[in-house]
């Protein structure tokens, strides 16, 4: 099936097998290797991208089902040579080691910063809370990091959230 996506601002038309995930489409067909395959079942967050501005798991999205969507991958976060503030903060806070979960962490954080409303740890559900470290930890728990860089990830995101 032929589908068209806006990927990092550019229209991309691809003929895809309906079985192909958005993740495999990005990696194997469009040469965008930023989104990572960690589990292929929505259990690790390494494949997180922004679909129509919201963070989502590209491994659980069929390419055909996102036809017509805007997709932003980690390759599309920076503004030319100028890193996204999250990217710069991740480097400065040493918020990664092996780097494999990092694109997903970054896309997830970028999406998360634009998500209002409470989380599971918000005391008063009627209030949109400040992004305290506790709130960030809960909201970023869909992105596993086996190297254990969480402490630094949270400090990097906190700096940008301020």
């Amino acid at each position: 099936m032929e589908i068209t996506l806006q990927v990092n601002g550019k229209p991309r038309t691809v003929d895809v097998d309906p079985r192909m995930s958005l993740l495999d489409l990005l990696r194997e067909r469009l040469g965008l290797i930023g989104a990572k395959k960690g589990c292929d079942h929505g259990q690790c967050g390494a494949c997180t991208v922004l679909i129509d501005g919201r963070r989502a798991l590209s491994c659980l999205a069929l390419g055909v089902a996102v036809d017509g969507s805007e997709v932003t991958t980690v390759e599309g976060l920076a503004n030319g040579d100028e890193l996204h503030p999250l990217q710069a903060a991740f480097i400065e806070h040493d918020a990664f080691q092996c780097g494999y979960c990092t694109p997903g962490q970054l896309c997830s954080a970028a999406g998360m910063l634009g998500e209002p409303g409470p989380s599971a740890v918000t005391e008063d559900i009627l209030v949109d809370p400040d992004l305290t470290p506790e709130e960030i930890r809960e909201r970023m728990s869909g992105n596993l990091c086996r190297c254990g860089a969480y402490v630094n990830i949270v400090s990097a995101i906190s700096e940008v959230a301020r």
Partner: peptide
């Protein structure tokens, strides 16, 4: 010091085994 490969890792350009264009 900051990781030398930090920039390629945060921009999605670091190439892991399955990612070489062949």
């Amino acid at each position: 010091m900051n990781r030398i490969e930090g920039r390629v890792k945060v921009t999605g350009l670091a190439t892991y085994a399955a990612e070489y264009p062949v």
